[in-house]
Structures are given as structure tokens and as C-alpha cells.
């Protein structure tokens, strides 16, 4: 098989980012006519097999081993290396999930083969494929190329490919048992948990005024709170304000915060990093104010203002009726 796609188990379901990786593989394979297979590590939760049986790939492999029943970086690293040794794929595609961040760099090191991470786009060139990656906080991009012979590990940024384009099929299913010694797993993991939300539920909010590092200092937050109050909106924020202890964690929007879909998401001094955008791109309307005309938030906003939020917030609060 030319391309193997890693199908990630996210709390008993197929991770959305893995479906996106299958889409990437389907598109990548089309031009040169490559074959695509997918694999799942560990036991199959109820319902997942049906979904895998409908994926538009040649086959999917269920990889079993006692060390794969729970996730561990050691177990997954060993399984990936062994699977790659046995199947000899040219590419291993996956979503750039937190789990992939956790162990794939170690697979890359063990195999001495490249891990081209967080890719947003690819293109077939004369010299082979290039993988576009954002650098300098998405202000620039560059085309990465793998060197040398052997498998290439590629992870795709969340939402870079649309799962709606997923082609269906009727793949063959195969089981594969890996003989991995139990003592390779050196870590002991406890049960995952979520922290108290303190009664804040941004997911139910119709209107969200959300502030980012552009708010400048903690003392300016009441300005934004006054605007939110006048609009009848909840106050949300980007991660750096939570990291700084200026905003409570329950109000963070993004991949490590809440996913929201309000009627209006009003982004104030937020640059629009992908980890933030993931949490708010479902909003019906996005209005953004940012002093930098190049800020990526303007790529997803419906309405944009290039300006200083510290000047505009008080004026707007004043001008709103009620």
C-alpha cells in the first residue's frame, strides 16, 4: 500500500481529524494513482467498524496488541514502527491531533525518517510532492519536501481538509496482531477528566464578545465586559489571557477551550490562530476588530475593522442603544 492513514480513537469514536486525513490521502493519491489503506490501533469501540467499512480506501487494518488497548506514547510509537516495517508504506498520513503531537516525533526519530507536521496543503511537483506548512505564526508559509528513501510521516492541520469531501467505498478489512512486549510501556496513565466549568456555558450563548492579547492589560478587561453587558453577550477570550490568569479558563474559546457557535462572535484584538479559529468557526456571523490589516482573523470574519480596540470599545458601548 502506498499511503497508510492513521485512524485515531477519540474517546470511543473515529476522530474527525482522521476523516480529514483520509480526504487528504484520497486527494493526494488521485494524481499519481496511489493506493490508500487505513489502520486503527487497539480494540474497536461499538459502532466504529461500520464507519470504517464505508471509508473510501482499499482496506482498513485493525492492529491488535495488549499494549494498544489504552493509549501510551511508548505503545503507539512501537506499534507505528512495527506496522511501518511490515507494511512498507511510502506515506503515513494523519491529523495533527494532540495525540499525534505526543508520539509521532518519536516514531520519526526511531525510523530516522521525516515527520512533516501541521500541513495545510500539498501539491505534486516535478521533483515529487511538496507539503505546505505555516511558519512564523501563520504569517508565512513554506513548501516542505522529504529527502532520502523510505516512509514519510505527514500530519494535517485540523480543518485544512473538509470531511464533507470524504469519498465512501467498501474496503476490505484485515486484522493484524503485533507482538509487542508489555514492559515497553513505561508510563502509568490515570482516568481523563474535565475541570469544573463554574456554571459558564459559552456553547449556549447567542452573542459572544471575545477578547485577545490586543486588550493589552488586565485593567482593560472591564471595558470589554461593559460592552458585552450592554449587548447582552457573554465574554469569551483567547488562550493567552487565560494563561496570564486574566480570564477564567471556562471562558477560553479554541481547541483547548470551548467550541462555540453563536449568532455573533465579536473578536476584539484576536489574531485568529488556528487553535482559536477551530473553536469559533461555526459562528453564524464573525465581526473582528484588529489593528493589523494582515491578521488572519480577517480571513474568516464577515465584517472587519482595522482599528484600535481600546479606542473603539468605549465608543461602541456608548453608541449602542439600551
Amino acid at each position: 500500500m502506498d499511503i497508510l492513514v492513521f485512524l485515531e480513537n477519540q474517546q470511543g469514536t473515529l476522530h474527525r481529524i482522521s476523516r480529514e486525513a483520509v480526504v487528504a490521502a484520497q486527494e493526494f493519491a488521485r494524481e499519481p494513482g496511489l493506493s490508500v489503506a487505513a489502520f486503527w490501533l487497539g480494540t474497536l469501540p461499538p459502532g466504529v467498524a461500520e464507519e470504517l467499512n464505508a471509508l473510501g480506501v482499499a482496506e482498513w487494518i485493525q492492529v491488535s496488541s495488549p499494549v494498544l488497548n489504552d493509549y501510551s506514547a511508548d505503545g503507539y510509537t512501537a506499534a507505528f514502527c512495527e506496522l511501518i516495517r511490515q507494511e512498507q508504506p511510502r506515506y503515513i498520513f494523519m491529523g495533527h491531533s494532540y495525540r499525534v503531537r505526543d508520539f509521532v516525533p518519536r516514531v520519526s526519530t526511531r525510523l530516522n525518517r521525516p515527520f512533516i507536521s501541521d500541513v495545510i496543503h500539498f501539491a505534486w511537483k516535478e521533483q515529487g510532492p511538496v507539503f505546505t506548512k505555516q511558519i512564523f505564526n501563520a504569517k508565512m508559509v513554506t513548501d516542505m519536501q522529504a529527502q532520502g528513501d523510505g516512509p514519510v510521516l505527514v500530519s494535517f492541520q485540523a480543518a485544512a481538509f473538509s470531511e464533507e469531501k470524504l469519498a465512501a467505498g467498501s474496503p476490505a478489512a484485515r486484522e493484524m496482531t503485533l507482538d509487542l512486549p508489555a514492559d515497553i510501556v513505561r508510563s502509568r496513565a490515570e482516568e481523563p477528566f474535565q475541570e469544573e466549568t463554574g456554571g459558564v456555558d459559552l456553547t449556549a450563548a447567542d452573542l459572544i464578545v471575545s477578547i485577545g492579547r490586543g486588550i493589552g492589560k488586565k485593567e482593560n478587561i472591564p471595558l470589554a465586559q461593559a460592552l458585552a453587558d450592554k449587548m447582552g453577550a457573554e465574554l469569551g477570550s483567547s488562550r493567552p489571557l487565560v494563561d496570564a490568569g486574566w480570564m477564567p479558563p471556562q471562558r477560553q474559546v479554541g481547541s483547548s477551550g470551548q467550541s462555540v457557535a453563536p449568532k455573533l462572535y465579536f473578536a476584539l484584538g484576536i489574531s485568529g490562530a488556528i487553535q482559536h479559529v477551530i473553536g469559533m468557526k461555526g459562528s453564524k456571523n464573525v465581526v473582528a476588530i484588529n489593528k493589523d490589516p494582515e491578521a488572519p482573523i480577517f480571513e474568516i470574519a464577515d465584517y472587519g475593522v482595522v482599528g484600535d480596540i481600546l479606542e473603539l470599545i468605549p465608543l461602541l458601548t456608548e453608541a449602542l442603544p439600551g
Binding site: N112, R113, P114, I116, K133, Q134, I135, A138, K139, M140, V141, T142, D143, M144, Q145, A146, Q147, G148, F298, E299
Partner: peptide, 14 residues
Amino acid sequence: EKTQSFGSIYIPQK
């Protein structure tokens, strides 16, 4: 040996 590289960097098309 080197396993990955890039040739040039550019501003993304918006």
C-alpha cells in the same frame, strides 16, 4: 543526513 527541507518562504494567499 537531512530528512526534510524547504526552498523558499512566501506570504500566504488570502
